[in-house]
Computed example of a mutant assay.
Amino acid sequence: MRRTTSLPRRLSVAATTMLVGALTWAGCTGGPDVVPAPESSATASVAASATPTSAVPVLLADGSAEDNLPFFAQVMESVWAVDQSYQGRPYIDALVAAGFPKADMELTQDRTTVDNPADAIQFSVRWQGECLVGQVGPSTPTPTAVVLPEVPGGSCLIGQTRPIDW
Results as ranks from 00 to 15, higher is better:
Ala65Phe: 06
Arg89Lys: 15
Trp25Tyr: 15
Pro70Ala: 07
Trp127Tyr: 07
Asp115Glu: 12
Thr108Asp: 04
Gln87Lys: 14
Arg9Ile: 15
Thr113Glu: 14
Glu130His: 12
Pro52Glu: 05
Gly99Glu: 08
Thr51Ala: 05
Ala73Asp: 11
Ser54Phe: 10
Glu106Thr: 04
Trp25Met: 13
Phe123Leu: 06
Ala118Pro: 06
Gly31Pro: 15
Met76Pro: 06
Pro152Met: 00
Val20Lys: 05
Val46Asn: 09
Cys131Trp: 01
Tyr86Asp: 15
Leu7Val: 10
Ile92Phe: 00
Phe71Ser: 09
Ala15Trp: 10
Gly159Arg: 01
Ala42Gly: 03
Ser139Cys: 01
Gln84Met: 14
Thr144Ala: 09
Val114Glu: 13
Glu77Leu: 06
Val125Ser: 00
Leu19Cys: 09
Ala73Cys: 05
Ala118Tyr: 06
Glu66Lys: 12
Ala47Val: 08
Pro57His: 05
Thr140Tyr: 02
Ser49Glu: 10
Met18Gln: 11
Ala50Val: 05
Glu106Leu: 00
Gln84Ile: 05
Val58Ile: 05
Ser54Gln: 12
Thr17Gly: 11
Met18Ser: 14
Val136Ile: 13
Ile164Tyr: 00
Val58Cys: 07
Val13Pro: 00
Ala97Glu: 10
Arg2Glu: 15
Pro149Asp: 13
Asp115Thr: 04
Val13Cys: 01
Leu23Ile: 13
Thr112Val: 08
Gly21Arg: 10
Pro38Thr: 08
Pro38Asp: 08
Pro57Asn: 06
Ala48Ile: 02
